[in-house]
């Protein structure tokens, strides 16, 4: 027994000695699992997506024909349907991002700078709480809220207004609600890093609250705002379930992908459409990189 144990110890020791003297092997072993995950699952599937977009489907039998063609991509870039839907999707994603930032900024500011640490903890829990419920539950809850005999209509009718019903407005409201925690949290973390002394110094030097916010807080907060906007913008860009549930008859890019995979059984076309949000996100991140905001992240 002791002999076996010592043999094991010495084996472990030998391995450890070997790894100590070979830093490259050590690094390789450490990184191989996550890298394999990233390369095989993520990069390979993205590459497969690109390749699939270059194939076509036999119209009748629905079998994929592996002949190289740019038809799908040309079709997606030039087709008026895809242009309209892309513009609509980007518009909705921008609106959701703006709505979320407007709601999240004061909440995050209150949490980071005003609230006592007890309230702060409670608010973090409150912000995270909606994430415990399933996405579908929240979307269907909004379906009943937006219904024409729902709570929103009941609240608004005395004011002479009406519920937006199942429409793009409904989609913006629902998505704004669902992605809100993802925007509040980075803003909160960003504001926590702004030292109180800077705010006091600004006020000592005579700056009013808005000037302080504009000249001190906002520049320091930009990376957090960008991080939050990437979440709300990219998550909205790819969504199709919320649109299905509260969007009425409207469709977004995700719905076109879904129809092409499901109803139309046209995987190459779906892949070509799926490239649109990827290109938009690459463009957005490249633009953000130019501003230098990513380095402060």
């Amino acid at each position: 027994m002791t002999g076996g144990a010592s043999a094991r110890t010495s084996f472990a020791r030998r391995v450890s000695t070997m790894l100590y003297s070979r830093p490259r092997t050590r690094l390789g072993l450490l990184l191989s699992a996550p890298l394999a995950w990233l390369v095989l699952i993520y990069v390979a599937s993205l590459a497969a997506l690109l390749v699939t977009a270059l194939w076509t489907v036999d119209d009748y039998t629905g079998a994929i024909k592996m002949e190289w063609t740019f038809d799908n991509i040309v079709h997606v870039v030039t087709g008026s349907l895809y242009q309209t839907v892309t513009l609509r999707t980007v518009g909705v994603a921008l609106l959701v991002t703006v709505v979320d930032l407007i709601i999240a900024l004061p909440i995050a500011f209150f949490m980071a700078k005003v609230a006592s640490s007890r309230i702060q903890r409670l608010m973090v829990i409150a912000v995270l709480m909606p994430l415990w419920a399933s996405y579908l539950v929240k979307a269907y809850a909004w379906r009943s809220v937006l219904s024409h005999d729902g709570i929103l209509a009941w609240l608004l009718r005395p004011l002479g207004l009406d519920t937006p019903g199942y429409s793009l407005t409904g989609v913006v409201l629902t998505m704004g609600y669902i992605w809100l925690p993802y925007v509040i949290l980075p803003l909160y973390a960003g504001l926590e890093r702004v030292p109180n002394s800077l705010l006091e110094a600004a006020s000592d030097l005579g700056a009013k609250s808005f000037t302080t916010f504009r000249t001190v807080v906002l520049p320091m907060l930009t990376p957090a705002i960008i991080a939050g906007s990437i979440f709300s913008f990219s998550l909205t860009l790819g969504d199709y379930i919320t649109v299905n549930i509260v969007g009425g008859a409207s469709q977004m890019l995700g719905n076109l992908v879904y129809t092409n995979v499901g109803t139309a059984n046209n995987l190459p076309m779906a892949a070509a459409i799926a490239l649109i949000p990827i290109v938009i996100m690459f463009g957005y991140i490249a633009a953000v990189r130019k501003t230098g905001a990513l380095e402060n992240l």
């Binding site: 690094l27 095989l40 390979a44 994929i64 592996m66």
Partner: peptide, 27 residues
Amino acid sequence: KFMSALKVSVVATAVALTLSACGTAAT
């Protein structure tokens, strides 16, 4: 060595993907 091993595995995966894709293409 690590990089070349990585390359080999990527190529192998690509080949496997292509083969399986060809398999489904036959009617």
